[in-house]
Design a protein around this nucleic acid. Structure first.
Length: 513
RNA sequence: GGUCCGUUCGUCUAGGGGUUAGGACUUCAGAUUUUCAUUCUGGCAACAGGGGUUCGAUUCCCCUACGGACUACCA
């Protein structure tokens, strides 16, 4: 019988979620959505020292912004609650004990100093991999080397201890990865991992196996950095007697820095010239602010589409996908194997595509919001018109205001290059007529304005190309922009006349030719 | 160092024993336009190297090189 697909995204709340984590969450979500399974968020907060306030809320908000919906989580709960490992603390010890009883784990009483000394000793002896393993455990202070009554006494006296997995000396561990195929690792390469820490918390290794089992997880989709410890996890499933319901594994290729030099990490912040976080993050300890995709003007649909393509592709020529389409097309088999360099240019391109596809009415909201900040009133109709004129020339919503403020504010400066090249007395003569005749124009709109201008040009024996740049300069102060006649239609008759008058005065120094 | 994973245009990638090695981003050129942008057309540009296997390898195998991850009482 096929089990219902249940996947989990299991971040630790040690700071903002970084973009690679978002992609991991996305792939999990897409698989669940595709097959009608469940998407679970589990907070892995077993390291109390690394707790960062606000991180969990940040994770929740990031997923929400991306449109990743959670079927079970710390906030909505679910049949396998709680979903925070710190709240599941009492559940782990029994499994560690089970492993001790079956001879697959043991108590260890070594201090940090003793562990350091052991590693130093091995290093000095030129041992390739200094680790706590089947050889070295015989020289350490643990329940395998100490007499039984001493162990009991230590335990009774409350001496600090950890529980370590007893990894077999010689054994091939096979692991089937959905992306890479069979991976073989020898047990000698794995050390006796700590399962329970001296503070009574489990380590990631134990906690994730116990929780995945208890929560009936069917697929573990996580970053490639987990691949080396995956065989260890297989061992745990086996020793706990859960191997027949062990989830399938898929280890995702890493997101690399643009230069290919190492994986993209949280610490890169804004150093690379682009955000590494979905949302803006303020470090609660240092106050340092890191920018986010949301605040930078990326639309969530574009961000998700872009992220999905970082390491996965549908095998067709289609590039633009809604979340539903992504879910339909998604398969783990089509995830690539190699690390993916991050290319912000592509993200920008996706954003432009989504921006242009949006209806003007929706884009107008961005402009209206910016206008409100500047205390400028504007009708919905006018904002829509401007959005329509601008949308093919912007990459981000903020640019509607930034690049088109001349729709609302008369220019105070004029592009000098255009002034030098295009502003001359012939053009001014045309503009004088234009300015004088405009007020009487009937049916004022882009077409009638153009007709009027054309008529004046004919009288002056000039062509439209000889004055358009200068007229644009007079009206907007800029060298480029949308159709000028449309701009004039939007700003209106009086404002146009006024701006032309102002320009004739202010630019008189250029009109010598 | 050890273990594991990887390697197709600058980047993301498709492909897969016989192809003019395809697309997208970037970039360049041309067309259109009142400017810029858009759009359209076109161009540059890749199978890491060496051995096998084979009639034939970019594709399968091995080695080398390079890159990456891991190597904590962190996840």
């Amino acid at each position: 019988m096929e089990r219902e697909v249940r996947v989990r995204f299991a971040p630790s709340p040690t700071g903002p979620l970084h973009i690679g984590g978002v992609r991991t969450a996305l792939y999990n979500y897409l698989l669940a959505k595709k097959v009608g399974g469940k998407m679970i968020l589990r907070i892995e907060d077993t390291d109390q020292n690394r707790f960062v306030p606000g991180a969990e809320d940040y994770i929740l908000e990031s997923l929400k912004w991306c449109g990743i919906e959670l079927d079970e989580s710390p906030v909505v709960g679910g049949p396998y609650a709680p979903y925070r490992q710190s709240e599941r603390k009492p559940m782990y010890m029994q499994y560690a004990m089970q492993l001790i009883e079956s001879g697959h784990a043991y108590y260890a009483f070594d201090t940090a100093e003793e562990l350091d000394a052991m590693r130093e000793r091995l290093k000095a002896a030129k041992v390739a991999t200094p680790q706590y393993n089947s050889i070295t455990r015989n020289t350490m202070r643990n329940s395998l080397t100490l007499p039984e009554d001493e162990v009991k006494q230590l335990l009774d006296s409350g001496a600090p201890y950890v529980i370590r997995l007893k990894v077999p000396r010689k054994e091939e561990i096979r692991l089937k990865d959905l992306i890479r195929g069979w991976v073989m690792v020898h047990s000698s390469a794995i050390d006796d991992k700590v399962l329970m820490k001296s503070d009574g918390m489990p380590t990631y290794h134990l906690a994730n196996i116990v929780d995945d089992h208890l929560m009936q997880i069917t697929h573990v989709i996580r970053g490639e950095e987990w691949l080396p410890s995956a065989p260890l996890h297989v061992l745990l499933y086996r020793y706990l007697g859960w191997e027949d319901t062990m989830p399938e594994f898929a280890h995702l290729p890493l997101l690399l820095k643009p230069d290919g030099n190492g994986k993209l990490s949280k610490r890169d912040g804004d150093k690379l010239g682009f955000p590494v976080f979905p949302l803006r993050w303020t470090d609660p300890f240092t106050g340092e602010v890191s920018s986010g995709y949301r605040e930078s003007g990326y639309l969530p649909e574009a961000f998700v589409n872009f992220l999905a393509f970082l390491g996965w592709n549908p095998g067709t020529q289609q590039e633009l996908f809604t979340m539903d389409e992504l879910a339909d097309e998604f398969t783990i088999e089509r995830i690539g194997k190699s690390g993916t360099r991050f290319d912000i240019q592509k993200a920008r391109w996706f954003n432009e595509q989504y921006l242009r596809a949006k209806p003007d009415a929706e884009l107008a909201k961005y402009l209206l919001a910016a206008l409100e900040e500047h205390n400028i009133s504007c009708t919905q109709e006018k904002a829509e018109k401007i959005a329509g004129l601008m949308k093919e020339r912007v990459s981000f919503p903020q640019e509607f205001w930034r690049e088109a403020s001349y729709f609302f504010v008369a220019p105070t400066e004029y592009n000098e290059k255009v002034a030098t090249k295009k502003w001359n007395s012939q053009a001014v003569a045309v503009f004088e007529d234009f300015k004088n005749e405009l007020p009487a124009l009937q049916n004022f709109n882009a077409d009638s304005v153009k007709e009027l201008l054309l008529g004046i040009l004919e009288r002056h024996n000039m062509k439209i190309g000889q004055v358009m740049q200068a007229l644009r300069l007079a009206v907007t102060g800029a060298e480029a922009g949308p159709d000028l006649m449309q701009i004039i239609e939007v700003i209106g008759k009086e404002e146009t006349v006024s701006r032309i008058g102002t320009a004739i005065e202010k630019l008189s120094q250029y009109a010598t030719a």
